[in-house]
Amino acid sequence: MRKNIRTGVLFISPWIVGFLLFTAYPLASSFYYSLTDYDIINPPVFVGLENYNTLFTGDDLFYKVLKNTLYMVFVGLTVITACTVFISILLNNKKVKGMAFFRVVFFLPTLVPLVILSILWVWVLQPDSGIVNTLLGWIDIDGPGWFSSPAWAKPAFILMGLWGAGGSIIIYLAGLQGIPESLYEAASIDGANSLQKILSVTLPMLRPVILFNVITGIIGTFQSFAESFIITQGGPDGATMFYSLYLYQNAFQYAKMGYASAMAWVLLLIALTFTLILFKVSDRWGNND
């Protein structure tokens, strides 16, 4: 047994070293930096909880950033989850032919590098000559300015997110295929129609997979950076100033490393809180079944 521990630890030793160097140490020093004033050039000056204090009481933009990001979580992620689950359930229908084809079509956008995705969507959502507004024009709708409109910039990012959500569809499909056929047969015998089967069999059985996608989706939303950095730089009028973008700007454009570190720790706590709440909520649903 002792020999086994030595062998096991030897095999995972790259991870242990990596965890200490690239995760544990940065995590701890991030907390230390969050208690300092640090501009990289001069040594850090300890300021206690001042950065946290400023975040919550002296920085109006931070509240806007939180509001923007939470909008993307509650509105954006909800829309994306509903759409991807819906498409997956339609695709999982045994009578639908060409599932392999559809799966590929929905997955392809996830392969487009973020920078190219951003360039592409600037053009897709171009107010005058973009394809979306042109199509809207055909049915006499005057399309919005999307990325240049404070009201429509966030929905534009949600549309982009939806286009890139094919990975979730693959994961949902795998989950759907794991639901035993006998459950549907039992529901059929009870006289359930398609909608009732979805509500009473599919969705409850899919719950763990939805939970997984929502949790990774929330963390992904808080981490989302490249698209807003490339397309809008937080504009127009701060409408797309999201959490990670503001954090990056504080750290690398204003050289406020301490302040940005405090934001990083708040982000960590937010991610943890969301994860715990979702597990709790999911448990409660589970007990009611």
Binding site: F22, P26, Y33, Q223, F225, S244, M257, A264, L268
Partner: peptide, 12 residues
């Protein structure tokens, strides 16, 4: 589950 932003600054 750890966001990259949390370790980014100390790593830099």
């Amino acid at each position: 589950m750890l966001p990259f932003q949390v370790t980014m600054i100390p790593l830099f």
